[in-house]
Design a protein around this nucleic acid. Structure first.
Lengths: 196, 196
DNA sequence: AACGACACGACACGGTACGTTCCGTTTCCG
DNA sequence: CGGAAACGGAACGTACCGTGTCGTGTCGTT
C-alpha cells in the first residue's frame, strides 16, 4: 500500500497506530464515521502523514483488512474437498460477522464504484490471488478424482463466494454451519452431475 | 417512498423532476457526485422539498431504481424453467450493466451498512418480494416435475443471484449470455443430483 | 367566491470533513 | 555532524450536510 515516497525512513510506529485506529473507529462508531481526521486524531498523527502514504481511507482499511483475512481463511488440503471448502467458507463468513471486519469490508466494497484505484488494488492484492488459490485447491481435488475433469472451476468459486457476498452486502443474517455445508454440497453436486 | 406528510397536495411535477435528475446526475458524474444539493439544483427544486419526502439521497435513488428494475426483469412462465431463469437473470445483468442503473444500485448497496432505514426499505420493497416471486416460479417448475420435490429453493435463488451480486460489487466484467446459461444449468443440476 | 392550510422555491445558517499548505521539530542516513 | 526527509500541529478554502425562515402560490374546504 506504500504509494509514492518509497522510503526506509517511514515511521513504523505511525503506520501501526493508523491501521489500528482505523479498525478501532470502525468498531466503535461504524465505517461511516471513520474519517481521515478521526483516524489522525485517534492515532496521534498528522493528517499529512496519512495522505503521504495512502490515497484514501478505503486504502487504509483495505490494508488492515487484507492482513486479517489472510490469517483467518487459509486454504488447507486434508484430502477431503468438501470438508476443506466448508471450513474455508466458514472462516470467511465468521470474519465478516464480527466488527470491525464486517463493516470495514462493507465500507471498502462501497468505495469501489467511485474509486478506480481502490478497485484495482482490491482485485490485484486480495480477490485474484485468493480465487487462484481456491481454484488450485479444487484442481487438486480434481486430480484425486473427487471432481470430474471437465468441471468449470472458476464458476464453482463464484457459486461459493457469491451467496456469501450476497448476504453480506444485503445485510441478511449470516450463514450458519449447516447452511454452509448445504451450499458446498450443492456446488460440488453441480460439478459432478451430468448436463440436463 | 412517501415518508411523513402524507398528502394529496404533493407536486407530482417536482417528484418526477427529482427522480429524473437523480438518475441523470448518476449517469453524468457518478453516484459519488450525486448530492441532495446537486439534485435540487438540477431539478429546479428546493432542498427542503427533497428532505420533506425522502430521508436521504439513497432513498431517492432506490425509488427510481425500483421502478426500472421491476420493468426490466419480469418473471415469466413459458413452461421451461431453464429458459425462464436465463432470461430473467439476463435481464437483471443487462440492467446493471448500463448507467445509470448499475452505478445507482452499487451506490444504494454502499449505503446499506450505515443506513438501517434504507436497508429495511430495500429488503421489504425490493429484495423480499422478488425472492418470493422467484421461489414461486421455481415451485411451479417443481409441480411440473422439472425440479425434485425436496429441493432447497431459497438456496437456489441465492446461488443464482449470488454470482450476479459478486461480479457487480467487485466490478468484474458482467456475465455474457453463455455464462448465464452455464450458471443456470449448474444451479438446476445441483437441485436434481443426488446427495454425495 | 373567499378563506385558510400547506407545499413550494429561495436563501442563509452552523456544522463537519475534505484535501492542501505552511511551519517548526525530530529522526535518521551518509 | 550536517542535511534531507518524515513528522505533528495548526490553519486554510471548499463542498455538502441537514435545518430554519420567509414570502409566494395553489389547492381543498365551507
Amino acid at each position: 500500500m506504500i504509494t509514492s515516497p518509497s522510503s526506509v525512513r517511514r515511521s513504523e510506529r505511525s503506520r501501526r497506530a493508523i491501521l489500528r485506529s482505523a479498525l478501532d473507529l470502525c468498531t466503535e462508531r461504524g465505517y461511516g464515521h471513520v474519517t481521515i481526521e478521526a483516524i489522525a486524531a485517534d492515532a496521534g498523527v498528522s493528517k499529512k502523514t496519512i495522505y503521504r502514504w495512502w490515497p484514501s481511507k478505503g486504502a487504509v482499511l483495505l490494508e488492515a483488512f487484507t492482513d486479517a483475512l489472510i490469517d483467518a481463511t487459509p486454504f488447507v488440503d486434508t484430502g477431503d474437498i468438501g470438508a476443506d471448502l466448508r471450513s474455508h467458507v466458514a472462516g470467511a463468513v465468521k470474519l465478516l460477522s464480527v466488527p470491525p471486519f464486517g463493516p470495514a469490508y462493507a465500507g471498502i466494497l462501497s468505495e469501489l464504484h467511485h474509486d478506480d484505484r481502490l478497485a484495482q488494488q482490491l482485485r490485484e492484492e486480495l480477490i485474484d490471488p485468493r480465487v487462484e488459490e481456491a481454484i488450485g485447491r479444487l484442481r487438486s481435488a480434481q486430480d484425486q478424482g473427487q471432481i470430474p475433469p471437465g468441471a468449470d472451476l472458476p464458476l464453482a468459486v463464484e457459486m461459493l463466494y457469491g451467496p456469501v457476498y450476497y448476504r453480506h452486502v444485503l445485510r441478511k443474517p449470516v450463514q450458519d454451519e449447516e447452511t454452509i455445508a448445504t451450499l458446498v454440497d450443492h456446488v460440488l453436486r453441480s460439478l459432478r452431475a451430468p448436463g440436463y
